[in-house]
Design a protein around this nucleic acid. Structure first.
Lengths: 232, 232
DNA sequence: CGGCATCCGGGAAGATACTG
DNA sequence: CAGTATCTTCCCGGATGCCG
């Protein structure tokens, strides 16, 4: 039963598009419901089944199982065991899987202009950090080099800004120029809501350490595109 | 019943992702089966229902109706009547809808590296011409300015290459530097298969007019990305 | 003929319970 | 924790028919 699934890579003949267009093939690869969001959640590094399930509220275990099988069968991710003593099974994107990030970026940038986009919905740590990479304005970041630490509860991330790009990895920053600690919605308010850092700190939602003027500038580097109908 | 559909824009609550991530919202907008391919087929200008259905082999009339309703409800396309004497109803992308082209490009470029991509499947005129825009290598086109005519049976298209970009519109070219006439697969063979124009002309599959040396250079401007596993 | 509604079968998605 | 089994619901795709 599992062997059958692996041998027919991708959807059955019924669900193929029979179209040489690359975009059509892309939809066969990651166009199934939840598939691209699974890829998104793995974009900052491997995760285990339960964390994926927790970070994709609404997905059911059997659908997640099926998507992971399909994405593995076509070479977008691999199932691997962490070395002892962890020895847990995790799912990790292949190099080609990591190359899917521009899909998330272009789709996200375009959809952010939608009148029906609701930015008040919940956001995972991964998708917030990826959104920073997406929305970073290279012009505003011109000539700026810095290391930034993020801490959301237990998990820490490190961002390195330079050459108009923002690299992000899991783990504590070594000697960050600035660091943020708090929940995702607080950082969203600062970066996308334009709420002053001082207010968020006063309310206890966010803790900022390091060069505070630099932090205030950092959160302005990520302009949202104008909504449809507004000038732009 | 139709009003219900229009008032709940996008999928029902069950099928929403409940995720503020732009990519997730993008999937709610164009993530349904066939939706993005409908957008693709409209990318070079408005089309009528029957032509859409013919250009998307496999889609059924009711699904096409449903996708057109949904895409109209969220503002990606509009249903409009051509002026008399044509007076036919056509579907046309909104300006925001046309801005979805980079999604097709990024998805297509990424999926072209897939080991399972089958370039021998049929390709519509629209998706072939869009693929030229996608795959154009600005470095190879450096300093090149030309007008190119395409004719596939009844329909003609005009391409304008300049500044490392290729603009394409429907209609006969005025004074093209080069022109191709034939079926899509013949042009595919020339551009992506590396088959010499002379061979294709000898077999009668393709007719080339204008500056033949320029035509031979033109078809080399669209390199395919390396497959996964090959260097690149 | 173009556009759309209706009905039906198959299959994918979703929810829940259960197992190694 | 990492899935599997089962059941239900809903969507997709095909066929048919209505109506302008």
């Amino acid at each position: 039963m599992k062997l059958e699934k692996i041998t027919n890579c991708g959807p059955g003949p019924r669900r193929r598009y029979n179209d040489a267009c690359g975009a059509a093939h892309g939809l066969e690869l990651v166009g199934d419901r939840w598939a691209l969001l699974v890829v998104r959640e793995l974009m900052l590094g491997p995760k285990r089944f339960c964390d994926l399930k927790a970070d994709l509220p609404g997905i059911s275990a059997n659908v997640l199982t099926q998507r992971l099988e399909e994405l593995e069968a076509v070479g977008i991710l691999t199932r691997c065991k962490l070395p002892p003593p962890a020895s847990v099974q995790v799912y990790e994107l292949t190099p080609w899987g990591y190359e899917a990030e521009p899909i998330l970026q272009v789709l996200g940038r375009w959809a952010a202009r939608s009148p029906y986009h609701d930015p008040t919905l919940p956001l995972t740590e991964t998708s917030f950090l990826l959104s920073l990479r997406t929305m970073l304005d290279p012009a505003r970041a011109e000539g700026l080099r810095l290391t930034v630490g993020f801490r959301f509860g237990a998990q820490a991330y490190t961002g390195c800004l330079g050459d108009g790009q923002l690299a992000i990895r899991r783990g504590e920053a070594e000697n960050p120029d600035i660091a943020f600690e708090g929940a995702v919605p607080a950082l969203v308010a600062a970066v996308y809501g334009g709420q002053p850092l001082s207010e968020l700190e006063a309310s206890g939602a966010l803790t900022v350490t390091g060069d505070r003027a630099l932090a205030a500038r950092f959160v302005t580097l990520f302009p949202l595109p104008p909504k449809v109908g507004e000038e732009g």
